[in-house]
Simulated assay, not measured.
Amino acid sequence: MRIAIAGATGVVGRHVLAAAQARGHDVLPLTRSTGHDLARGAGPAGTSLAAALDGVDTVIDVASVQTTSAARSRAFFTAVTSNLLRAEREGGVGHHVALSIVGIDGVDASYFAGKLAQERLVAGGAVPHTILRATQFHEFTEQVTARLSLGRLLTPIPIGRYRPVAAREVGARLVEVAEAAPAGRARDLAGPREERLVEMVRRMFAHDGVRRPVVEFPFPGAYGRASASDVLRGGADADRGAVTFDDWLRSGDHTPIGSRTDAAASTRT
């Protein structure tokens, strides 16, 4: 099967790429480094995105943007999703797979606003599709500390209650979804244990040998209320990943603080 991966170098995308290659698929990364501009709908060397997707069976979209602005998130996901769906329709792609977030119904705010807009476009589009919703990734601890740490003095962490999952498991599940027939909505994927974000950060700091105070604070607005509630944990009927947060900390997927840069750690997907 020929699979195109939008966002193939991101936190989840690199695992999608590895899983697809390991399962013997012919993979086309859709990234700026390969000459694809998804926000403009352009392929390499002035070609169209539709031409780039010639012969592709399935597109897995894990492209993302680092923002807490609802307007910017909507603009990004609307542009990328519309361009991908248009190119897939013109190029004869038979399956569009999109990654979204568990529990965001009714939370049309911040980053979630763009994901809801993406889901609506995919569900209402002409290309047969599957949407996989997953809970927050273990990797979020790296991202949030890189963004919020006040030097070595203090790390404020927003209240967050999740059932986090390893990005590697999400990537593998997306490839499994791509291999199957379009299903509309796949079963949600959540992690094996409930966790509080502030405690995850403290354990990561202890594992990495970082001595820095960590304090928890309420993030304002609908996004903050959702993160502090139970809605982002996933329901009882969600599939469960096997990799715990502590397993992930001990794995090669975690880059210890001190051996990474904040810029490298701040990419979500």
Rank of each mutant, 00 (worst) to 15 (best):
L154M: 14
S48Y: 01
A50Y: 09
A75Y: 00
L38D: 01
D54H: 15
R133F: 06
G235C: 05
R163C: 12
S259M: 13
A51C: 04
S227P: 00
L232N: 01
P182F: 02
A113G: 06
L85Y: 01
H129N: 13
G106V: 13
V62Q: 05
L116V: 05
R163L: 00
V165N: 06
G125F: 02
V97E: 04
S82K: 08
V198L: 05
G55I: 09
N83D: 00
L99F: 07
V198R: 05
I5M: 04
I257T: 14
R233I: 03
D57P: 01
G224H: 08
M200C: 15
Y223K: 03
P44Y: 04
A180L: 05
R32P: 02
G106D: 05
A126K: 11
S33Y: 11
R40W: 00
T269Q: 04
D26C: 04
V80H: 00
T81E: 02
D57L: 00
R202C: 06
H254L: 12
R89D: 14
H15V: 01
L99K: 07
A263T: 14
Y223G: 07
T34Q: 14
L174S: 06
A206M: 02
I104C: 00
V12M: 10
R225N: 12
G55C: 12
D37Y: 07
P218G: 13
T9K: 13
A166E: 11
A222T: 13
V65Y: 01
S64D: 14
A206D: 15
A222H: 06
S110R: 12
T34W: 03
R161G: 11
D37W: 05
A20C: 08
V165I: 15
A126D: 14
R72C: 00
E169Y: 04
I131A: 07
S82Y: 01
H15I: 03
I257C: 03
Q136I: 11
D237N: 12
V27W: 01
